[in-house]
Design a binder for these strands. Structure first.
Lengths: 244, 244
DNA sequence: GCCCAAAATTAACCTGCGTTAGTTCCGCTC
DNA sequence: GAGCGGAACTAACGCAGGTTAATTTTGGGC
């Protein structure tokens, strides 16, 4: 089971084994959390860069009156803001969706590895820019897409991101998040998430039982959701790339 | 009339005059556009970092069927993705909202100035992280806030961002964008933007005539919109900072 | 195999916002 | 100052999605 951060970055640049070893060394498990726990809280001073090694996590923001928006979803291999230290305070929280294993990387370790290995620095740049692109695409989804398109688009995105770290097989992947959390992420009520899932299932676009998602015909879901994967900036189309 | 990029960055770090001069030198006007023109188009290879010197611009994305989402709004002093070159292709377009004057900064100039002046590099880091924070806050708005809150929140944000580059006086600022563009940015129809503005006016929260916005009682609008300025990460609260 | 809490599902009703189709206003040009 | 085009504004109606309040299913823990 290779390190998911290394695996993810290799979608952009193939790294030397020295570079990979350096990355693996700083991205070791240091913290385990259960589902629905906070990793860092809004207002905290950031102390490390968190990398998800196992499980799903998220950024979220809670309004004074309790409304909650999940701002982004973190999958294995994802890392939160490699340069977050520049800001004094978190302006949002990080929380787990499932049980999670994290690597907490200190500021110095990031600085050292990027100074020593320019290709790792470039790969981290790519990671940041793609994270920003995903955030923009969520803006588009929330602003323009209807509920079916919005959910379908999310399924397409998460499937490709999971495939990029080797966490899919054929047309299926784990999908361990609740409909309530899906609602908070998509700006929809739990009830409407449920209705919309029913509709996507009825249209044969997805199967979703327990914690398993199947997309029997990716291009059909893609067309129905107006999903264009170019914002993910994978050099090699992950749908057509053989596993290592 | 000082360079708005310098002015903006000084909200984070006070720069030496040498650093300021270096920034001003690379942020000189090189391109003028009319309203509603494209600066860079989706799919293009990025050639420079664009800095807005005058006027308002935006990122936007157009779906196949014509729906358009304005993803972010650029004000004077804003700069688009200092490291965009890492990606081969634009995944969205940049366009003007009003007449605009741009500085087009080549990749090499960015690299040189950040290598020579670490404090400028840190200021650009701050800029990038705040831009990301603004994008996250738009996600929250689109996902959770009602139309009145959403528009009120945008007014608060833009007012503070304009104030940070000295483009407000007392409680007013220029507000040169059409209701149609506001709709594309807020994920609302033009008709509903109009209704919502009427409501905000009736509540005495804003005045908006021609291209002039007045916020007579900022904290009232702030409260009505659930606006918390901490995501803008100004070191000194721009509402209480005297003009230089 | 039973218990329990969390998650999924459904129905009935309601509302915020979209759509369509105008009319009015404003700023510009000649 | 007449005329024009784009922007602002309005009204009537329709629909996507929210809300409330149940009921059913699921998956651990013992």
């Amino acid at each position: 089971m290779p390190n998911p951060l290394v695996r993810k970055l290799e979608n952009f640049i193939r790294l030397t084994s020295e570079e990979k070893q350096a990355l693996e060394k700083i991205a070791q498990p240091t913290r385990r959390l259960g589902p629905r726990e906070d990793v860092v809280r809004d207002g905290d001073r950031p102390r490390h860069v968190n990398v998800v090694l196992e499980g799903w996590a998220c950024r979220y923001k809670q309004l004074e009156d309790g409304r909650r928006q999940v701002i982004s979803i973190f999958l294995p291999g994802d890392l939160c803001d490699p340069h977050v230290f520049v800001l004094r305070k978190m302006d949002h929280s990080l929380g787990t969706l499932t049980s999670v294993v994290l690597a907490e990387i200190p500021e110095t370790a990031i600085r050292e590895i990027t100074q020593q290995y320019p290709r790792v620095a470039e790969a981290l740049w790519w990671e940041m820019l793609v994270t920003a692109a995903i955030q923009r695409e969520w803006t588009v989804s929330l602003g323009q897409r209807l509920a079916t398109e919005r959910l379908g688009h999310l399924f397409c995105e998460l499937f490709l991101r999971l495939r990029a770290v080797g966490m899919t097989n054929d047309t299926s992947c784990e999908f361990p998040i609740t409909q309530a959390d899906l609602g908070d992420a998509m700006g929809l009520s739990t009830v409407h998430i449920n209705r919309t899932l029913k509709e996507l299932r009825a249209a044969g676009l997805i199967r979703l039982r327990g914690r398993q998602l199947t997309i029997p015909d990716f291009s059909a879901l893609q067309a129905a959701s107006l999903f264009d994967p170019s914002y993910l900036h994978y050099e090699r189309d992950p749908l057509n790339t053989a596993e290592d």
